[in-house]
Design a binder for these strands. Structure first.
Lengths: 187, 187
DNA sequence: ATAAACTTTCAATAATTTCTGAAAGTTCAT
DNA sequence: ATGAACTTTCAGAAATTATTGAAAGTTTAT
């Protein structure tokens, strides 16, 4: 399998970035390749296109499955497994956020909760525990927000953004709304 | 310098997690230590508390500076540099988001823009380019949203969350508001 | 100008992560 | 039950990333 110049740039770039997004280079490349392919690919296609060993493809596919990022398809009369990306691009982003949250935020939240449990032994420990609580609260807020954002469908989100209406604008609309209700009462 | 048991757990955990958040173990540990310390620390304090070489402390401090996460303080009559975390916990989170955006999203956006420039050579390239555009749009939306969120002060954000009002709730308020304006007209 | 008290640099080394490929495992048709 | 066509596993090799510590650099006081 030959990649076009464009696809190649994309795939390699995604490989480099992928490692910053929580999975390794190969996993990133494979996923990128699957996303821009107009048909599902089998392991040998992938191994050949990306010049990586068959074993590596197998491991990476497994990793992608653990992130729930791919589907496995079968073609009648063909014993091979064909892989394709699961869901929309928006779904992908959600999965990645979700998975990262599980791996990176949840354990921290749970540790911080534990460390709050018993009371500080002295002044400096009180200070430390206070900071830990701050971080805990922040992480919890972030977690809640991201859950909210995931609940929104992307079309709605996009329309809002395109209108130039950011969160602050929405918040001010909320204020106006409250105000407007008060005005009603005062009429 | 001796760390209390609690601080030690926190610092080591932060070290492990740090590596997932874009900086390495040592950098994470140092930052965590500075955050929970009630006074600024100098390089030897850090080196001793964390059992890492003096050189490593120097490199890591430099890294933290590049993330704009620490302040350098001086104490009269003392030649040493004393380090402390810069800004609030919320500021820290913003810095980390911001820095990661620069390193992880911006380069991708710029590549994807470039790849859109010339028109597809064939059908399959058209498909690929279309997917790339989708990803581009998504990343742009995320970037805009995160910019908006950063503009909000944390207190406001927190109050909103505590009220149980997520984004979707706010959006529905927005709808009600629009509706209410229409009602006015029809009155 | 010197020396003391620091910080920074960087080549060598250590630790960690990723990748390969041969061998073992699985599934299916006959 | 066998073998063909696949996939998975995993020990060792390769690549990458982090750390040390000695030497060089900087700053300040005298």
């Amino acid at each position: 399998m030959q990649m076009s110049q464009k696809v190649e740039s994309f795939v390699y770039h995604f490989g480099e970035m992928g490692s910053k997004w929580g999975f390794n280079r190969t996993v990133g490349q494979i996923y990128a390749l699957l996303v821009v392919s107009d048909k599902p690919l089998h392991a040998n296609d992938i191994s050949e296109a990306l010049n990586i060993s068959r074993g590596n493809v197998s491991m990476s596919i497994k990793e992608l499955q653990s992130w729930q990022l791919i589907n496995i398809n079968h073609i009648p009369k063909d014993r091979k497994e064909y892989y394709s990306p699961k869901g929309s691009i928006w779904d992908m982003a959600n999965r990645v956020f979700e998975e990262r949250r599980k791996r990176e935020i949840d354990p921290t939240l749970s540790l911080l909760r534990d460390l709050q449990l018993d009371s500080p032994a002295d002044e400096s420990e009180a200070f430390a525990q206070d900071k830990m609580r701050e971080i805990h609260d922040l992480l919890e807020t972030i977690t809640q927000w991201s859950a909210e954002l995931q609940r929104l469908d992307p079309a709605k989100l996009n329309t809002l953004m395109k209108l130039g209406a950011g969160v602050s604008k929405i918040l001010s609309i909320k204020d106006q709304f409250k105000k407007s209700k008060v005005d009603h009462k005062n009429e």
